[in-house]
């Protein structure tokens, strides 16, 4: 087991190198020049300004030299400074990460808490009205454009009913509130984005849960359990669910990068100060150091997520052993 772990961790090094190299090259291949983007449509700009910017960004060096500089820095855990506001990439990411972790972490928990029981119930009532209702319910969420759903919720709960705020993470006057009211304030800002993020993801997870439950429920050992005279609750939750959950664990592992990725659409609509917006804006503005920073961290988390999923497998399923 320890050997397996060590091997997998060591393997991550060349993988990360490869990923970072490919991202670096692809990013630079994308047409567009970060320096001229910076000035946009403003026509009263010094021409020398663009050249100065290019030089200060280090864009005049050949690609390989640029990558080499980047790699040298990254080995010292220095992600460089952003093009946009010339601040350390790590600090910029650090500012945005908590908001995204909060939203996507809660949403991920909520997602599994809601979707798994939904899927299990759907499998249990296979092809009955309840199953169909859940399918329709979750597919509506899946197919509805999230920005539209978000706007409708904002209009209903924010403007018409005037119950919830529609933008940001805190109220304007939040800093004058006592701490318990501040938490309430935060929660009220969280509700709508949380609903939108979670509802959209329900379909896939609940479908997975349903399929894998359906498969398990037809197994011999379930029939045996029933024949033994166990109660239905025990059959479903003790014998069936445990086995049905194994594929779900993979999904959980793979969703780890989502935790920090955030959703650009939802964060933009709700003015949520998270990573999704940061990532998207940095793509649009060709902010290479920032993009690489986000990319490397996401890649690392994906690899770790895979590893964790594999480990969880071995732990959950006695048939799987890594020796």
């Amino acid at each position: 087991m320890r050997k397996f772990l060590l091997r997998r961790l060591l393997l991550m090094i060349p993988l990360l190198l490869g990923i970072s190299f490919i991202s670096f090259v692809i990013m630079q291949l994308a047409p567009g020049d970060p320096a001229s983007l910076n000035i946009g449509m403003n026509s009263k700009i010094d021409p020398s300004y663009i050249l100065k910017l290019r030089q200060s960004y280090g864009l005049d060096d050949p690609l390989m030299v640029q990558y080499w500089h980047w790699l040298k820095r990254i080995c010292l855990l220095n992600f460089g400074n952003t093009f946009r506001d010339n601040r350390p990439v790590i600090a910029v990411i650090g500012e945005r990460l908590p908001a995204t972790l909060l939203l996507s972490g809660l949403s991920e928990v909520l997602l599994f808490l809601v979707a798994v029981p939904l899927g299990v119930m759907a499998a249990y009532y296979h092809n009955r009205w309840y199953d169909r209702f859940i399918s329709i319910f979750s597919f509506v969420g899946f197919s509805m454009p999230s920005f539209w759903f978000a706007l409708m919720l904002m209009l209903l709960f924010g403007v018409w009913l005037n119950l919830l705020p529609v933008s940001g993470m805190t109220s304007t006057e939040a800093e004058y509130l006592p701490w318990n009211d501040r938490i309430l304030d935060l929660i009220s800002h969280l509700i709508l984005p949380l609903i939108v993020t979670t509802y959209g993801g329900l379909a896939s997870i609940s479908r997975y849960a349903r399929t894998s439950m359906l498969e398990v429920i037809r197994q011999d050992y379930i029939r045996t359990a029933r024949a033994k005279g166990l109660s239905e609750t025990q059959v479903i939750f003790k014998h069936a669910l445990r086995n049905a959950l194994i594929p779900i664990v993979t999904l959980m592992g793979l969703s780890l990068p989502n935790l920090i990725g955030g959703s650009f659409i939802i964060e933009t609509i709700f003015s949520w100060p998270g990573m999704g917006r940061l990532g998207f804006e940095s793509v649009l503005s060709h902010d290479y150091p920032l993009l690489m920073g986000i990319g490397v961290i996401t890649a690392l988390l994906t690899l770790l997520g895979n590893l964790l999923a594999d480990l969880a497998y071995a732990w959950l399923d006695p048939r799987i052993r890594y020796d």
């Binding site: 706007l151 209009l155 933009t268 003015s271």
Partner: peptide, 13 residues
């Protein structure tokens, strides 16, 4: 100055 990137959200707010 509240930063609200989406034009629709500005109007709703």
């Amino acid at each position: 100055m509240k930063i609200i990137p989406d034009q629709a959200t500005i109007f709703l707010d």
